[in-house]
Nucleic acid binder design. Structure first.
Lengths: 164, 164
DNA sequence: TCAGTATTGTTGACCTGGACAACAATCGCC
DNA sequence: GGCGATTGTTGTCCAGGTCAACAATACTGA
């Protein structure tokens, strides 16, 4: 039984110049990926999130938490359903996310007197203070992103995607 | 103990016009998110991935698998380290991803005769056939994306991000 | 030569997020 | 007043990202 049980066995060695290459390989070809916007959007998004997370790590605010705080602050008393629809966060996920923010004393969920099912979301004073700090840090991140993309391209992308 | 053990208790009802609003709420304000490119990039990326996944579901190829097949096909015999660096996939993750593709008979990992640690990656004939099919479906997805963004904006975004 | 160091790939473990279903409470409508 | 729809919560599953440890191999410098 020469290891034939394992479906991921190594094949026999191959005498192929490509596999023997030792000199520094020229840049990897991306092939048809060059025509797929999703590839580039994903790379940009990964870079942005990593920088954002690193920048706001000291106050322990993730991108999703940041956008939540911003939108709650800008729309006092809105419901979770509305918030989720605005941010594209599924309601189960949003419930847990808000619990985390509430446990940290940043948001409060008041019972809406107009609809017993809804929670009217609000920032606590502490939430507003933290949000101000978060906005400062987030603008630092955005400055770094502008520097990386170039200001003109950054503006082009923002205006191009805003009304999407 | 009126429920005071639970740190996430509901507060007393609030008499606030905002919470009592019953008429259709005007569009949710995004506040400062309007100035953060990451917010828009993420929304676009989510849309793209959802459409891509749905389009290629019938052949069970994810975006990461697609880009892997494309790059392996375009760079015969490259190593996992090179592939991972090109696509921004961490090597632990890439190892498992490739195992999945190998188990499906789409890629093979030949021992590189130049370096005993490396695997020279290649598509199998079956992998090449599936990749052709995947490319067809992916271009359908891209057409849908172009229709949604508008061709001009799509081209603008691609050329703007390609050399990023 | 060879001992120490770096690289490559693999595996295990953990965590976050997304997706989906079930559920209770409440609302709206007829 | 009852029935379907909505809202929020919870459980569960799965995919991905991350990190650490490890074995095998390559490289480097004394």
């Amino acid at each position: 039984m020469s290891g034939s049980k394992n479906p991921r066995r190594r094949a026999v060695a191959l005498r192929n110049p490509a596999t023997a290459r030792r000199s520094p390989r020229p840049a990897i070809a991306l092939g048809v990926l060059n025509f797929h916007l999703g590839y580039f959007v994903r790379r940009l998004q990964v870079w942005i999130f990593q920088d954002f997370i690193r920048t706001l790590r000291r106050i322990d605010i993730s991108p999703a938490q940041f956008s939540t705080l911003v939108v709650v602050n800008a729309n006092g008393g809105l419901s979770q359903a509305e918030l989720g629809a605005a941010l594209g966060i599924e309601r189960a996920r949003l419930a847990r996310l808000l619990h985390g923010l509430q446990d940290r004393g940043l948001v409060e969920r008041l019972p809406s007197d107009a609809d017993g099912r809804r929670h009217a979301l609000r920032l606590t004073p502490r939430g507003r203070v933290l949000l101000a700090r978060a906005k400062t840090l987030a603008s630092l991140h955005e400055k770094r992103l502008m520097a990386k993309l170039g200001v003109d391209r950054h503006n082009l992308l923002i205006s191009s995607l805003r009304n999407f």
